[in-house]
Structure formats: C-alpha cells, structure tokens
Design a protein around this nucleic acid. Structure first.
Length: 448
RNA sequence: GGAGAGGUGGCAGAGCGGUCGAAUGCGGCGGUCUUGAAAACCGCUGAGGGUGCAAGCCUUCCCUGGGUUCGAAUCCCAGCCUCUCCGCCA
C-alpha cells in the first residue's frame, strides 16, 4: 500500500492533475498527504516506545536468567518502565489504526492518472484510432451486391433490429426471462442457446490454441477483498449484485476473480507475462441506466463474456495492451463484423485505468456502434491494491507488476451484430463460417 | 450440518512464555573443485514500514481479529481456512 504513498509524496502534483482530468476531487490527494504525515509521526513515536519496551522486557528476562526473582524488587523498576511504555503504545496504536484506515480509504479514492497522451475530456474527446470492415447499410437493394446501385424496379429490403429477427427465429425469450428473473435477464433458446456456447468455445479456443492464453474457469462470486483489489469497491460498488448474507459479490466481469488469482503473490521475472483467458457470466445492476437500451440484449443485467487478463513487466505493458487489443480485433475480423477502435478520453475511462481502448462493432439493424470490448492497461494501480509483485532479477527486491485486461469478447452485443449483419431478406441468418463447426448449422431459420 | 486434527519462511518441517525472524532438510543464489557437468564442501538466501546521502539503525509480521502478561509463534477467546471421519447432496 505504501508504495502508493511513496509515489503520492514524490508526485503529488501529477496525481492531483490526473484526478482533475478524470473529473474526480483533487483535494483527496492533499487529505491523503496530510493523513500520511500524521501517520508517520505516530509511527516514529510508537516505534521509539516499542524499542524501549523491548529493551526493558529483555532486561527482565536477562536478570531472571541470572537468578533474580521474577516478581522481586530487582525487576520492579524495569517492569514499571515497560508498563508505562506499553500504555502509551496502546494509545498511539489506537490512533494509528484510525489514521491508517483514513489513509487507506483516501488512497482508494484517488484515481489512477491517465497516460499523458490520453485526450482530456468526456465522450466528445474520444479518438477513433482505426476502423475495419464495411459498415453495412440498414436499407439496401433487394438484389445485387451491397453498395451496388439500386435495381431498376427499386426493390429494397430493410434490416431489422436483432430483437425482431431473434423473435422470428425464436432464439430469444426476453419476456419469459423477465417473468422468471426480471427484465434484463435474457433467456436464450434453441440455436440461440447453442450460439452462446459456440461463441464462448470459439473465443476460448482461439485464445488458448493460437494466442498463448491459459484458460481459467473462475467462481461467479468474489469476496470483498477481491472486489477491492480490482477497484470495484469503492468505485463501482453500486453496480454489483451483493449476497449480503454471505458477504459475496456476483462478479461483474471475470477480470475480478482472475486478476485476484495472484493477490499477495510474487512472480519471478521469468514467469511473466502471465496470460489468462476466462469465461464467466457477468452480473451488473446497471444502476442509473434505467430506461436506456431497454429493447433487445444491448444492455442486460446478466451476460456472458470471455475476458483476457495479463500480468506483465512494467516496461512491456504498453506493447502488451496493443497486442491484446489486436487479439480482440482478430476475433471480429474472423467473424466478418465491421468495427472501430477508440482511444478513450480521461473522463470516459473510469477510475483505475491508465489507458483504455474500446472496440465498437457496427450493428446495421439498430444503426449503432456497440461496445463489445474494452482493453485497458492498469499499470501498477491494481497491482498495488492487490500486492502483486515480481522480482526483476533473481534475488532482487520485489516490484509491482502491471496488470491489463480486455474483453475477448462480450457476447450479447456480438450476437446482436451477427444477427443484424448476417440477416437475410427472408428472415434467416447466415452463420459466420468460423462458427459453423461449433453450431453444426450454416444458417438460423425461423421455425415453420 | 456433526465429530476430530491442524494452520510457522519458496516448499517440507521443529519450536519449555524471555537473545526466536524463528532449528533442520529441500529448493534458490554465489564460490571452491572439474576440460565441462554431476557429486562433495563453504557461504548467502522472507516481506512490509519508519529513519538515513549511505552503511546502518529501529519497528512490525509465525492464518485473521481480540485478550492475558513486564514480555506471546508459544497461554485464552472469536472468526476464517485446510485435512480426516460421519451425515446430506448436484
């Protein structure tokens, strides 16, 4: 924890500016500095008294060893000294405990400053880094190639939003999901369900067989320490479902359990990078988003996602972020879905990220870009909270690792984009070639 | 859920309430020897914090949190976790 304090002491102005850029309260930095100063005062005084108590107690032990009466007058003065120190120590320790808690609490409320080249601002400041693929139109000629001139008869067809196509195919049961759990808890039926499995399997297969990831199947709940480690607490606490009876949190992403796998551990440099790919269901309350994206499966309380998690050497983390983002893009390219990559501006990137790319896929039925992946470099911020370190050289002092993660990919919006991009005028949906072996079908057809 | 055992350094495994941060073994690092390697032998080898230019000094940590005591890895209480047996169960 105090490695964070060291940086705070040395680099307070930059951290204060980082908080301002992210739209957070910079005065927390000064409060933390002040609390830290008090903490060090108490620490110095307490250590001094403890040294005194230790020497007195040791002297008692020594005199007993040479024959003194443990409760006799020979040791009485020493005992008195030790007792006096002891009572002052407990007073100091009591205050220290509260100051420590204050410092820790304040530290948790200071955001990770963004990289220097990240644009400052909100959504309007995001930068589109690159785009890939053909942005399909919603309306196109009934015959002929996409983008071709309209045929003479003027016949056209319109792509429909995924919820309409899905209803026709009977692959979603959104109303029944609302009945049995609540709105935002979709049910997938038939090949819709198979499609979920297929995507999960294919994503994981690519990551493990081609990209060098180790597959992890994590718990769907975590304890408070884990939620704190990755920064869900206190920053995003109200976005999580909580099992109060057992003090457990339903995971909002596999990032939380998987990154916490190595909490309080020390890697050898030769072990890095560690690359994990993990499927998990994801639970999000979406508090504050009520009324937004209520149709279809664009914003739901439970969804499925394959997440990539990396532990890297600090000097390698920037390159690793580019690589990992590329792995997510590769999946979309092989699915044949158009997408764009955005470098997110400071107020768009959240508390713990140092740099974040969002990948948005084009959904022609709703005519929107949908976020299907978010790839971030947390630098040493999460590592500090979780005490994940590595030895740069064998036998060297441990230093904080860098952690990164990115979706690879989130299912529901990918499903929506597939359905809207691959739908045919007759209501069927062509299955992207890479998924056919998994799905056992070349197309999804409405039941007769 | 019931009964019992246990949680000590990277691992294994000791540790009468007082030089115990902790024996010993393994592992790791360095060295001697060797053409090289192995073996053998010698030495070193936990983490956090405070202070200091530094060497160093001080302090905390033997699952977690309380308590007893001049002094706790060692005693007491609570919790968590692991293992064994029984019950239940996908």
């Amino acid at each position: 924890m105090s490695v964070g304090l060291q940086r705070l002491r040395e680099d307070a102005p930059a951290i204060r500016q980082g908080a301002i850029d992210k739209g957070e309260d910079p005065s927390i930095v000064d409060q933390a500095l002040a609390a830290d100063a008090r903490r060090r005062e108490l620490l110095a005084e307490g250590d001094h008294l403890k040294a005194e108590r230790n020497t007195a107690s040791k002297a008692i032990g020594e005199s007993i060893r040479v024959g003194a009466d443990p409760h006799g007058p020979a040791t009485a003065a020493l005992r008195a000294r030790s007792t006096a120190a002891g009572s002052r120590i407990s007073a100091i320790d009591t205050e220290l405990a509260t100051v420590d808690a204050t410092v820790e609490d304040l530290l948790l409320r200071i955001p990770n400053p963004a990289d220097l080249d990240v644009p400052v601002g909100g959504e309007e400041a995001n930068v589109t880094i690159r785009t890939w693929g053909e942005q399909l139109p919603r309306v196109q000629p009934l015959s002929g190639e996409v983008g071709a001139d309209a045929p003479a008869d003027g016949a056209r067809w319109e792509r429909r939003p995924h919820w309409e196509v899905g209803a026709g195919l009977r692959i979603f049961e959104l109303e029944r999901g609302a009945k049995i759990a609540g709105s935002g808890f979709p049910v997938y039926r038939g090949l819709g369900s198979t499609l979920q499995r297929s995507l999960i399997s294919w994503f994981l297969d690519v990551h493990t067989r081609e990209n060098g990831f180790t597959e992890i199947w994590p718990p769907a709940v975590v304890n408070a320490a884990s939620a704190r480690g990755t920064g869900q607490i206190p920053d995003k606490e109200d976005q999580m479902y909580v099992v109060t009876r057992d003090e457990l949190y339903l995971v909002p992403t596999a990032e939380v359990p998987v990154t916490n796998l190595h909490r309080d551990e020390i890697f050898e440099a030769s072990e890095l990078p560690v690359r994990y790919a993990a499927y998990s269901p994801c639970f999000r309350r979406e508090a504050g988003a009520a009324g937004k994206d209520t149709r279809g499966i664009l914003r739901v309380h439970q969804f499925d996602k394959v997440e990539m998690v990396l532990f890297e050497r600090p000097e390698a983390s920037a390159q690793a972020l580019e690589w990992m983002t590329g792995r997510a893009e590769d999946l979309l390219q092989r699915l044949g879905l158009a997408y764009r990559v955005l470098l997110m501006a400071t107020r768009e990137m959240g508390f713990v990220q140092g740099r974040k790319y969002d990948i948005e896929v084009w959904a022609p039925g709703v005519e929107r870009w949908l976020e299907v992946s978010s790839c971030s470099n947390f630098r040493d911020y999460q590592a500090r909270r979780m005490a994940v370190r590595y030895r740069p050289q064998p036998g060297a002092k441990p230093e904080l690792v860098h952690t990164l993660n990115g979706s690879g990919l989130a299912l529901p919006r990918v499903v929506a984009a597939i359905i809207e991009s691959y739908q045919n005028p007759d209501g069927s949906v062509t299955v992207p070639a890479v998924l056919r072996p998994y799905l056992g079908q070349a197309e999804l057809r409405p039941p007769p």
